[in-house]
Design a protein around this nucleic acid. Structure first.
Length: 344
DNA sequence: AACTCGGGGAT
DNA sequence: ATCCCAGAGTT
C-alpha cells in the first residue's frame, strides 16, 4: 500500500466525529475553517456551535451587526477573522445571492480566505483536487520524507503543496486532505509522538534517521514587547460606568474597553491618581480611587505581554453616556476585560 | 520577507 | 518558559 492508502485507512479508523464533517454545505465548512485558523478544534468547537445556532445560514450572519458577531467571537482571538467573516457573509448574501464561489480560485478572492482555507472549502465542499497545507501537513510530510526546508520560507508552502498534490488520490481529495490533517493532529504530534504504534513506523524517513524531534525545521523567533495598561473602572452615584471602542489599528480592533492609561512602565497609585484627577474627571468630583489588583495581571498575547491594572474610580454625580451593568455586558470585550467584569 | 494579530493547551 | 494550533492581511 502507498502513503495515501495507508493514511486514508488510518483516518477512516481513527477520525473524530466533528460537526463540520457531516456536510458538504460550504457555509458551515467555511465557518469552521475560519474559526480553526491557528486554533485548536477543542477551542473552536463551542464557537462553531453557537454561531451555527445564532446564524443558521449565511443570510443570518450577513444581516447581523458586526458587534453581535464580535460578541459571539469574544474570547476566540484574532478578531480580524470575525470582521472579515462578517464582511464576506454580506458579500456572499447580497452580491452573490447566497451562492458561495464554486472553485478554489474564486474562493481565494474572499476576505479572510487564503490558500489553506480556499483549498479546504474547495476540496471538502466540491471535491476539487487542491491540497491543503497547514501546520499538520508541514509536520507530517517533512517527517515522512525527511524534508529540511525551513517552513517559514515562502517557497516552502509551494514545495509542500506540490508534494501533497502528487500524493493526493485525485478521485478523493476531500478524504485525503482531512486524513493528513487528522493524522498530524492525533498521531504525528509536535512533541513526543508515539511512533511505536504509528502505521508509518517502517517507512517514515525521520523515524529511521532518528530526526523526528528535529522536523519540521522552523527558524522563527518572534520578539515580545511589554505594555502597561491601566484601566479606569468608573462608577458614578448611579453605579454607571464608561467604556470606549478600540478603533485604532492594532490589537482588539473594534472591541470595547474601559478608559485606558497606557504607561511606559508599571506605575503606582500616586502616578495614576494624578493622571485621573488632572486629565480625566475634572468636572466630576473624584470621591475615591482604588487599586483593584495590587499585582498586575499578565495577559499574554503571541507578540505582546500586557501588564494590566484595574483602577476603580468612584465619582460624584452622574456621568454622561454612562451605562449600567446589564448594558455593559452586551458589548464585545477582550477576554481579560470580560473576565474582570464577570468577577465583579 | 518580516511583522502583526489572541487565547489557550501541552510539555 | 516555550511551542504551536485546520493562517491571513499588511508593511
Amino acid at each position: 500500500m502507498n502513503f495515501s492508502n495507508v493514511l486514508i485507512k488510518w483516518y477512516l479508523q481513527n477520525k473524530r466525529d466533528l460537526p463540520w464533517r457531516n456536510t458538504t454545505n460550504p457555509y458551515p465548512i467555511w465557518l469552521s475553517e475560519i474559526m480553526l485558523q491557528q486554533t485548536r478544534v477543542a477551542q473552536g468547537m463551542p464557537y462553531f456551535l453557537s454561531f451555527t445556532t445564532a446564524f443558521p445560514t449565511v443570510f443570518d450572519l450577513a444581516t447581523a451587526n458586526e458587534e453581535e458577531v464580535l460578541k459571539l467571537w469574544q474570547g476566540l482571538g484574532y478578531y480580524s477573522r470575525a470582521r472579515n467573516l462578517h464582511k464576506t457573509a454580506q458579500y456572499i448574501a447580497f452580491d452573490l445571492a447566497g451562492i458561495f464561489p464554486g472553485n478554489y480560485s474564486d474562493l481565494l478572492k474572499l476576505k479572510g480566505v487564503g490558500e489553506y482555507t480556499a483549498a479546504a472549502i474547495a476540496s471538502f465542499s466540491y471535491n476539487e483536487a487542491v491540497p491543503v497545507v497547514d501546520g499538520n501537513v508541514f509536520r507530517v510530510l517533512s517527517r515522512y520524507f525527511d524534508i529540511e526546508t525551513d517552513i517559514v520560507q515562502a517557497s516552502a508552502k509551494k514545495e509542500f503543496a506540490a508534494l501533497a498534490f502528487e500524493l493526493m488520490p485525485k478521485d478523493n481529495p476531500a478524504t485525503f486532505n482531512q486524513a493528513i490533517m487528522e493524522f498530524g493532529a492525533l498521531q504525528c504530534v509536535p512533541k513526543s509522538p508515539n511512533c511505536s504504534i504509528c502505521v508509518f513506523n517502517e517507512s517514515c524517513a525521520a523515524l529511521q534517521k532518528k530526526k523526528v524531534d528535529q522536523l519540521p525545521v522552523k527558524s522563527k523567533k518572534l520578539k515580545v514587547r511589554n505594555r502597561y495598561f491601566n484601566y479606569l473602572v468608573v462608577a458614578d452615584e448611579k453605579e454607571n460606568t464608561i467604556i470606549q471602542k478600540r478603533t485604532a489599528k492594532g490589537i482588539w480592533h473594534n472591541l470595547y474597553e474601559f478608559p485606558l492609561i497606557e504607561t511606559e512602565k508599571e506605575e503606582n497609585f500616586d502616578f495614576i491618581s494624578e493622571q485621573i484627577q488632572t486629565d480625566y474627571f475634572m468636572d466630576n468630583n473624584v470621591i475615591s480611587i482604588l487599586e483593584d489588583n495590587d499585582k498586575s495581571i499578565i495577559h499574554k498575547l503571541s507578540h505582546q505581554h500586557l501588564h494590566i491594572k484595574f483602577w476603580k474610580v468612584n465619582l460624584n454625580g452622574s456621568i454622561e453616556n454612562g451605562i449600567n451593568n446589564s448594558v455593559l455586558r452586551t458589548f464585545p470585550f477582550p477576554i481579560v476585560i470580560y473576565n474582570f467584569i464577570e468577577k465583579e
